[in-house]
Nucleic acid binder design. Structure first.
Length: 474
RNA sequence: UCCCCGGUAGCUCAAUGGUAGAGCGUUCGGCUGUUAACCGAAAUGUUGCAGGUUCGAGUCCUGCCCGGGGAGCCA
């Protein structure tokens, strides 16, 4: 129903757009365009570099973000993906440009040329005094741009995600995500880790079997979308030493919360001969590098999303580390009913994270609550050599990992206890047959990390096209 | 799977069981420094769907559909 209704509307929109394009062509003679001379003279600039061109004539190519009209003065506001800039044009001085822009609809694509001037009354401090304006495509009045400069509901915005990403806040978030990814990869590479990508199609589960996406593979075979690259990165760690994988992972969890996506990106390092403490060090170094790189290179975007930089500037190693045992005591002291052996839910994570200004590492969880591949603590066999990193301010778990079970017999027993299909894990057991070594790693959830860095309410905003329970459109 | 909240104009939301409304957007008009501009006017509705109660249902009842938040599980 919903999809049928949406696609009908979309088709009619396409038809109208096509018609308006024809009208635009017919109007070419009447609509004033800048001269060839002006086009050649004015350099094309992006709005983020406008300040460097103050006092000069320049061309901006973008979209009409908003238009304020005041009689014979127009204040069009343009966006070009790098920022937003106000223009000004008067009918007396530039009648042709005025006519081209007057009444122009939101998100019409435009090319404008004019003098860049410092202007305290303009948002951003600079404005363009327009000499010439070319409308590339006018959004038809009959089907105006659906996203207004007003509040909208979540459902509506997610249906319009392909357009929602045009708003300055969303564009800033996507730039921060890109910077976080670059910083993460740079850091891993600088630590001697080699990127070895894991497959997306897998023959079996590596987390719980209930959250698997099953797909039809070739010739009646079944395959599953990966829940984690971890098992594969263990294999490449035995081949190359220090490795990581970074890519999308898929979990068919029936959970709709602000912290969940069915498709999310994970960075998973794995190192041979590494132990729990090594991975805690690596994790805090990685997270710190991501945060500091965003603070340094995307301060403007952090400002656009309203993030308080002072909290992020403090993020540097060492992070507080407490054992699960101590975490339970902290919770109980705070009046939380958690008992030893319970896993921590969202409330508990939030409570613990509020005790610290930095991400907090909780290590050595009870073995019973961790995955089959997790190593046990020799000194306390009831504990696993595992750790989680909880982001501050209630943004939840951003890292989970630890030392792996390297003993063949123990691993086989754990696979059977977990009721996993043993035959699908033969290749994985080979890693314990041929030169098994202690090794450790973790998975960092990109979207949760970026959501924390941006301070967004929901992780759906930090991925271009979120996939969630009940939502695979657009 | 369970619990809570919601579905009214393109959007955000009002509307004691008694004529379905406002703001924004759109259209028309006005305004030479606007700041989600402002002022005046106009058009815009299968109140999610199907039943039921009632003289009368957007409102109450039942079922279903869709969405949001959370639990469980996880990054």
């Amino acid at each position: 129903m919903r999809f049928a209704r949406r696609s009908t509307g979309w088709k009619s929109l396409r038809r109208k757009s096509a018609a308006s394009t024809r009208i635009r062509v017919e109007n070419f003679g009447a609509v004033p365009f800048m001269s060839q001379e002006a086009q050649i003279k004015a350099p094309v600039i992006t709005i983020d570099h406008a300040a460097e061109h103050a006092g000069q004539v320049a061309t901006i190519r973008g979209w009409l973000y908003n238009l304020r009209e005041s009689g014979k003065l127009l204040f069009p506001i343009f966006r070009d993906g790098t920022g937003v800039m106000q223009g000004v044009v008067s009918v007396r001085e530039q009648p042709q440009a005025f006519e081209a822009l007057k009444g122009l609809t939101q998100e019409s694509s435009v090319i404008v040329t004019g003098k860049i001037q410092a202007e305290p009354r303009a948002p951003g401090g600079y404005e363009i005094q327009i000499h010439a304006a070319e409308v590339v495509q006018k959004v038809p009045e009959s089907s105006p741009y659906p996203i207004q400069l007003k509040e909208h509901g979540v459902d509506f915005l997610l249906d319009q995600r392909h357009l929602w990403i045009r708003t300055p806040r969303q564009a800033a978030i996507l730039r921060i995500r890109a910077e976080a990814i670059r910083a993460a990869r740079n850091y891993m590479d600088s630590q001697g880790y080699t990127l070895t990508d894991a497959p997306i199609f897998t023959p079996a589960a590596c987390e719980g079997t209930t959250t698997l996406f099953e797909v039809n593979y070739i010739d009646e075979q079944k395959a599953y979308l990966t829940q984690s690259g971890q098992l594969y990165v263990e294999a490449t760690a035995a081949a190359l030493g220090k490795v990581y994988t970074f890519g999308p992972t898929f979990r068919a969890e029936k959970s709709k919360t602000r912290r969940h996506l069915t498709e999310f990106w994970m960075l998973e390092p794995e190192a041979a001969f590494a132990h729990l403490a090594d991975m805690m060090d690596l994790g805090e170094g990685l997270v710190s590098a991501m945060v500091q790189s965003v603070v340094k290179n995307r301060a403007r975007e952090l400002g656009a999303v309203g993030r308080d930089l002072s909290k992020l500037e403090e993020i540097a190693p060492p992070f507080p580390r407490i054992t699960y045992d101590d975490a339970v005591k902290v919770l109980q002291k705070a009046g939380n009913p958690t008992k030893w052996g319970d896993d921590f839910g969202g409330d508990e994570e939030t409570l613990l994270s509020k005790e610290f200004d930095k991400p907090v590492i909780i290590h050595r969880y009870p073995a019973a609550m961790k995955a089959f591949y997790m190593a046990t603590d020799m000194e306390r066999p009831d504990l696993s050599l595992s750790f989680d990193m909880i982001a501050p301010e209630g943004f939840g778990e951003i890292i989970g990992g630890g030392e792996r079970q390297s003993d063949y017999d123990t691993l086989v027993r754990r696979i059977r206890e977990s009721k996993l299909p043993e035959e699908a894990f033969q290749w994985y057991l080979d890693l314990r047959r041929y030169g098994s070594v202690p090794h450790a790693g973790f998975g960092l959830g990109l979207e949760r990390t970026v959501a924390w860095i941006c301070g967004t309410e929901h992780i759906r905003e930090v991925i271009p096209f979120p996939r969630m329970l009940h939502r695979v459109y657009p």
